[in-house]
């Protein structure tokens, strides 16, 4: 699919209200702090309804209380207009003029954002890896998105019960619901991880060429085999702390190279390559689902100093119908060039 145009109002430091993008490689060149990453972040938000890591109040221009991003997406079977109104703590999404939810956007549009910060996926907290998994799964399966929301609600209710003086029966009811939904979520996660691991391992081998094998698995804390047993094993701890301490909301993705944890033993370079492999898996799975390639957003490729990874990234961009690439210098191939300075984006 193609991002035909990107519009914005009061988004960080951006000043240009509208950007018309071409097929092939769109390049955004500018100095540091000119607003290159902001264009890509706005594009990702407009294409997916997802704001990577940030709060809405942080992406509004200083002193403003409302903002906007919009995308015009062209698919094989038609065109969709996505409008997202931004106010602190709230997104108001409209799809072709109708009020919609973020999971409705996933039906008509997809984008993958690859940034230098992706290395945090490996070295950062487990919540980042869970978010990677949950947000990808929610885009691939509406059923997962709905189940996950229900599951979170049950965890909240159960935690409220644990904090108060809970009756034995009340707790067992919420636990039963927790186990039922938790098992469904785990099963869907395990199926997805199997596919992610296959794709990521192939990509890793292509990028690194070091003969190492990338393994990805789900780590669920306790050794017990099912959620019911885990819940029983942690009964004392959760009563003491007043929160549910096991379950899919606490699981973590473990990435290993030849059986050794990258989180613990991997080099910075290995972590970057592994995180890139995860993004490639995201790209391929979305492509499988839509039977069309997602929009590829490549932030600050020039900060990538490793020749293999740099070449792989540019190859990926060159072999996709549309990519938006930012950097301090233009890459070798470029179909449409923009320059950014002080938030002003102009076609070259």
């Amino acid at each position: 699919m193609l991002l035909r145009s990107l519009s914005q109002l009061n988004y960080r430091n951006l000043l240009s209200p509208r950007l018309e993008l071409a097929e092939g490689i769109n390049v955004i060149v500018g100095n540091n702090a000119a607003g290159k990453s902001n264009v890509l972040e706005a594009a990702y938000l407009a294409c997916t309804g997802d704001l990577p890591g940030g709060k809405i109040s942080e992406v509004l221009r200083l002193g403003e209380v409302e903002g906007f991003v919009g995308a015009r997406i062209k698919r094989i079977d038609g065109i969709s207009n996505i409008d997202i109104g931004l106010t602190p703590g709230k997104k108001i999404i409209r799809l072709d003029g109708q009020t919609a939810r973020a999971l409705d956007i996933a039906k008509v549009s997809a984008a993958v954002l690859i940034t230098p910060e992706d290395a945090d996926l490996i070295h950062g907290s487990p919540s980042l890896r869970r978010h990677y998994l949950d947000s990808l799964l929610a885009k691939l399966s509406r059923r997962y998105a709905l189940l996950h929301r229900e599951y979170n609600r049950v965890v909240e209710q159960r935690n409220a019960l644990l904090k108060g003086r809970a009756g034995e029966l009340s707790l067992s009811i919420w636990s039963a619901k927790f186990v039922e939904l938790g098992n469904e979520i785990m099963a869907m996660r395990l199926r997805a991880i199997k596919r992610i691991a296959e794709i990521a391992n192939t990509s890793y081998a292509e990028i690194a060429d070091d003969g190492k094998c990338l393994g990805i698995s789900l780590h669920s804390g306790l050794a017990a085999s099912n959620l019911q047993e885990k819940l029983q094993a942690t009964a004392h701890e959760e009563q003491a702390r007043g929160v549910t301490v096991v379950g899919p909301h606490r699981d973590d993705l473990v990435l290993e190279l030849d059986g050794y944890s990258i989180q613990a033993y991997g080099s910075r370079g290995e972590a970057r390559t592994a995180s890139l492999a995860l993004r490639v898996a995201e790209y391929r799975l979305l492509q499988e689902k839509h039977r069309e390639t997602p929009v590829l957003l490549l932030d600050d490729f020039s900060s990538e100093l490793d020749a293999n990874r740099r070449e792989y990234l540019l190859d990926l961009a060159a072999n996709t119908p549309q990519a938006v690439v930012s950097g301090t210098e233009p890459p070798p191939r470029c179909d449409q060039r923009f320059s950014v300075s002080g938030g002003l984006v102009s076609a070259f």
Partner: peptide, 14 residues
């Protein structure tokens, strides 16, 4: 809803 389901399960047990 999640709450309605929990209520039904609670009553069913009793």
């Amino acid at each position: 809803t999640v709450e309605g389901e929990a209520t039904a399960m609670y009553l069913a047990r009793l």
